[in-house]
């Protein structure tokens, strides 16, 4: 399982742009958690997918100007 953690401005428009990118990724999204932290949202995405497809998603998310911070890593299930 891969966990992608991102920080975006506290705006549903920004969250919509994140979701728009996720929709196009060839991955199985298991869980998405959105937590408001002051003026930002922390979005935690748990997913399964091949290395190439996960890399595609991380690279495309990282292109969004609203993504202020992004981390990705594997987690044992």
């Amino acid at each position: 399982m891969t966990v992608i953690s991102i920080v975006i401005p506290r705006s549903l428009d920004s969250l919509g742009r994140v979701i728009a990118v996720m929709r196009r990724a060839k991955v199985d999204v298991v869980q998405v958690r959105v937590l408001a932290e002051g003026r930002t949202y922390r979005v935690c995405i748990e997913l399964n997918g091949t290395h190439d497809n996960v890399s595609w998603l991380v690279a495309k998310l990282d292109k969004l100007p609203e993504v202020l911070k992004i981390d990705a890593g594997d987690r044992e299930v």
Binding site: D13, G16, R17, R23, R24, K63, P65, E66
Partner: peptide
Amino acid sequence: IVGVVTPITKFTYQ
């Protein structure tokens, strides 16, 4: 329109 163009823009702001 923000929702409509979200997937086809680098940045959109209302």
